[in-house]
């Protein structure tokens, strides 16, 4: 005689979670595992355990498709605007909409700022001297902020192309990079490009990664901005004695060249 006791059997499952804080944007994907299990006691009388009957194997969420926040008001100023001259001092100012957290949120966080310079900037003089101590940081110890050239292509594939200039500014783990207006100062090795209307784009990213037990994760992106640089040569003067080819400069007038 068939049993009349009903059994509830489900196959379609839906779970909704609210107020989940999105992760950072990464080039790698994070695996999400869903396990279905049921209680059973083997052998009889033993402690009941959960036995997995089904689970995901490759479910991933491609966080590289997450949209990063926008760095606003990114602009560059230079004191030396003559083409092919070493950049006297370049200032990059920008505003962050996000706070890049420090160890207060996770003791394993590492924070960094990545800068991609327009391709025509010349860095043959070596790594530029970049000062980030005027940024809004929880710690402003200049000695603990490091700058390294990036030729990895990890953050921008052009960084590994000869002639392109990329730098990573690393902050101490405990540092919080706050929201709001920031500025960094660049001096030294960079040289202005030739005079072109649009030399290329500055690209700036804030990044974070974890370092757990000596294992570092990929950098994840938080904020990003791109600005087109615009290098225009200013009018300059070539002194008359520089024009003289035979040492007979007498009577020669200074010549001028025009900017564009």
């Amino acid at each position: 005689m068939p049993s009349s006791k009903p059994s509830t059997v489900t196959q379609l499952v839906r779970l909704t979670m609210s107020n989940v804080k999105n992760p950072w944007a990464k080039k790698t994907t994070g695996a999400i595992t869903i396990q279905l299990s049921r209680d059973a006691t083997f052998p009889a009388g033993d402690t009941s355990q959960k036995y997995i009957i089904a689970e995901t194997t490759t479910l991933t969420l491609d966080t590289s498709k997450f949209s990063v926040n926008t760095i606003s008001s990114l602009s560059a100023t230079t004191t030396e605007k003559v083409v092919q001259e070493a950049i006297g001092t370049m200032g990059l100012s920008f505003t962050l909409a996000s706070q890049v957290p420090g160890t207060a949120e996770n003791s394993n966080y590492e924070q960094a700022l990545h800068i991609f310079f327009p391709p025509t900037i010349d860095s043959s003089g070596g790594v530029a001297s970049i000062s980030a101590t005027s940024m809004k940081l929880s710690s402003t110890s200049a000695s603990s902020i490091t700058v390294e050239a990036d030729s990895s292509g990890t953050h921008d594939e052009n960084c590994q192309v000869d002639g392109y200039v990329c730098y990573i500014i690393r902050f101490p783990q405990s540092t919080i990079v706050d929201r709001g207006a920031h500025s960094i100062s660049i001096a030294g090795s960079l040289k202005n490009p030739i005079s072109v209307a649009t030399a290329g784009n500055f690209v700036m990213r804030t990044m974070i990664r974890t370092n757990t037990g000596g294992t570092t994760s990929d950098w994840a992106y938080i904020d990003m901005a791109t600005i087109a640089s615009n290098y225009k040569a200013t009018t300059g003067t070539i002194a008359k004695d520089k024009l003289a080819v035979d040492g007979q400069a007498t009577g020669a007038a200074d010549e001028t060249y025009m900017g564009n």
Binding site: V13, R14, N19, V20, N22, P23, I34, L36, A54, F66
Partner: peptide, 14 residues
Amino acid sequence: KVQQLATYDFSFTS
């Protein structure tokens, strides 16, 4: 968007 609070909806067929 990164670091925003969002609602996640998972649906699957066992």
